[in-house]
């Protein structure tokens, strides 16, 4: 198993990424202090955390919206910082697309759906012929479950779920390999969320995509992700495969986050025990030996190296307990 993973290609590699805003000024904000993780080709990587944890900042850095303060981000082996020329940037952006949280705010209200999706094709010089472009737009609309007659409508004529589908169609238009979905379903109603999630899953299979799925809704993240990274205060505290994270959450912050999600089950809610998290827990005065340590294959914890054996024991205990229930 572990060998398989070694051989899998990394599409994104983030190494000691740092992002400070207003650097050197009194108002300096250290949004991301130290983040390192990789995303393998063909997987869905979930990034969860509370507001202000730096998860969206990380997503924006990967797609090169703004310059990073420190560290290195590699996309398909290439340092994105070295992409400077417009031609290279276009190629980079064609390969990587983003779906945003607010479906209304991220679509130009003055353009029709055809112009929005067709615009992306035009910029990247994909379909120069107008008739062919229209045909492609119709195909894209149908692939996200929208009627092709909608092409001449404006965003305001759609519901939130439909708008989000348009946003997805626009992202897919340029045939990207990698898509960043930043809270793409948070603004939608429950019944519509399920529709969009199923659509994203289906498109991933069909088009061989890789996703970075940024969200705060942990149950949806678990459902769609292969691996999950948990962020808090500008650091990744735990990285693990999705199932294991829920069976054996090791870092106390992950535990508290999981214990805070209410489940649609009144009986379970009556017996829920909440764990509080003290952020002092991952504050180390001396940074020697502190970092992401591998507790088990593909399960990393931000801790001091002396704590590793403790986490290993904890993992064994939790896995044993989970087996008893199953």
């Amino acid at each position: 198993m572990a060998e398989d993973i070694e051989e899998r290609k990394r599409i994104v590699e983030i190494k000691e990424y740092k992002q400070y805003f207003n650097e050197g000024k009194k108002s300096e904000v250290r949004a991301v202090k130290d983040v390192s993780f990789s995303i393998y080709e063909g997987e869905t990587f979930g990034l969860v955390g509370e507001s202000g944890s730096g998860k969206s900042t990380t997503g924006r850095a990967i797609i090169k919206l703004g310059d990073i303060t420190g560290g290195q981000i590699l996309y398909k082996g290439q340092d994105i910082n070295s992409i400077k020329r417009r031609k290279d940037l276009l190629k980079f952006r064609k390969s990587m697309q983003m779906i945003f949280q607010d479906p209304y705010a991220s679509l130009n209200p003055r353009l029709t759906v055809k112009e929005i999706i067709g615009g992306a094709l035009k910029v990247h010089g994909m379909e120069t012929n107008s008739a062919e472009r229209t045909k492609k737009v119709h195909e894209l609309l149908e692939s996200v479950g929208l009627n092709k007659q909608f092409a001449n409508r404006y965003p305001k004529e759609f519901s939130g779920g439909q708008c989000q589908r348009v946003g997805i169609a626009r992202a897919l238009a340029v045939e990207p390999d990698f898509i960043i979905a930043d809270e793409a379903i948070s603004a939608l109603d429950v019944s519509i969320q399920a529709q969009v999630i199923n659509l994203l899953k289906e498109l991933k299979e069909k088009n061989n995509l890789t996703y970075l799925f940024i969200a705060h809704d942990l149950s949806m993240v678990k459902y769609i992700s292969d691996r999950i990274g948990v962020m808090n205060r500008g650091r990744i505290l735990e990285v693990s495969n999705a199932d294991e994270l829920y069976i054996a959450p090791l870092h106390p912050y992950t535990e508290s986050l999981l214990s805070a999600i209410p489940t649609p089950d009144p009986e379970a809610e009556r017996h829920r025990v909440r764990t509080e998290y003290d952020p002092g827990y991952h504050h180390y005065d001396n940074h020697n030996g502190v970092g992401l340590h591998e507790i088990a294959p593909e399960h990393f914890i931000y801790c001091h190296e002396d704590e590793v054996p403790l986490y290993r024991k904890k993992r064994q205990r939790l896995l044993k307990k989970a087996k008893q229930y199953a």
Binding site: S191, Q195, K201, M220, Y223, P264, D265
Partner: peptide
Amino acid sequence: WGLLASMPTLDVEQTSLYTIPGS
């Protein structure tokens, strides 16, 4: 039924989410 079934649960494995079609 649709509302309850379209929510992913944390403890049960699901392959695809139940959806209420349309809007």
